[in-house]
Design a protein around this nucleic acid. Structure first.
Length: 294
DNA sequence: GCGACAG
DNA sequence: ATCTTGTCGC
């Protein structure tokens, strides 16, 4: 309609360089989210069943749960380590892990986290799928929100739709939406405490339920925020989070977080050694072996 | 107009 | 997200 044609030499190419038209149009991102959201499934949509107890070994049960996270290097904030782990629900042990080191140019903008983090995570998932691993996750827990999002389509939804996997959003901080804020959550939590619930629904001003706040560990004051991503109901999501919570954050995302940070740390260590030793460079594993040999 | 805003 | 030491408690 009111499109101005005053842009100087705008390339119509599809290369997504944030330098081209980043300022005026998060509109493109909004349009993409609105489009993808039409594919979102907000109810249980999977073939597996949840095991009654950990020793249950029937066929067709949920067993492999993925967790994804990305950590960054302080030294070089464009360097990111995307991480995928898969845990066996029976033991809560990691049975698969993979990392991908990439340079991320897209900035973090609240409400648009997926455009920064989803591409690398999808790539790791795709790689695993093509490898034919028998551990390919039946469900994914995501470090970031699902429908608890200004447009009801956070990173967990985005990943779920694009990978066609059931996903659960795990937030460690509240994204303020529909009048929900820290004090509102405190009110809700304290009100729910009397009814002995370990989670409370996040009801916004509009009456819409965006997810749940949950004190996953007894004695933890700070809640986590659970919202559905894709192909799962909030009730099921909450049940699965509770099944996988040894600490405040459920194991899949917690392990992804820990190992991702660890990977970056080892990388820095490696770089430091490289600098100190110079041309006779050894990798850190060799270095540790040499140091530890009597 | 100003502030708030997952990771 | 990242930086950063010790500290208090079970």
């Amino acid at each position: 309609m009111s499109q101005t044609i005053t842009e100087p030499m705008e390339k119509p190419s599809e290369t997504e360089e944030p330098s081209s038209t980043s300022l005026p149009d998060h509109q493109n991102w909004i349009a993409a989210q609105d489009l993808l959201r039409e594919k979102l499934i907000r109810e249980d949509s999977f073939t597996w069943k949840i095991p009654e107890d950990r020793s249950d070994s029937e066929e067709g049960l949920l067993r492999y749960i993925g967790g994804v996270d990305i950590s960054f290097s302080k030294d070089d904030p464009s360097m990111a380590c995307g991480t995928l782990v898969v845990l066996d629900l029976r033991t809560l042990q990691v049975v698969y892990e993979d990392f991908s080191l990439v340079n991320i140019r897209v900035p973090y903008v609240p409400g648009f986290l997926a455009f920064r983090e989803a591409p690398i995570l999808l790539e790791i998932l795709e790689k695993m799928k093509k490898s034919g691993s028998s551990f390919y996750p039946q469900l994914l827990m995501v470090d970031g929100n699902g429908i608890l999002h200004p447009r009801g389509f956070g990173l967990a939804c985005h990943l779920g739709v694009e990978a066609n996997l059931p996903t659960i959003g795990i937030g460690k901080n509240l994204h303020h939406v529909d009048g929900l804020n820290q004090s509102r959550v405190r009110e809700l939590l304290e009100a729910g405490e009397n009814s002995c619930k370990d989670f409370i629904n996040l009801v916004g001003c509009s009456g819409h339920i965006w997810g749940a706040a949950m004190r996953s560990t007894q004695g933890s004051i700070k809640p986590i925020f659970i919202s559905i991503g894709h192909r799962i109901s909030l009730q099921t999501a909450l049940r699965l989070v509770q099944m996988t919570c040894k600490y405040r954050v459920p194991e899949p995302t917690r392990q992804a977080d820990i190992r991702s940070r660890d990977y970056i740390r080892k990388l820095k260590m490696n770089a430091r050694m490289k600098f100190l030793i110079g041309e006779t460079y050894l990798n850190w594993k060799q270095m540790l072996q040499m140091c530890c040999k009597p």
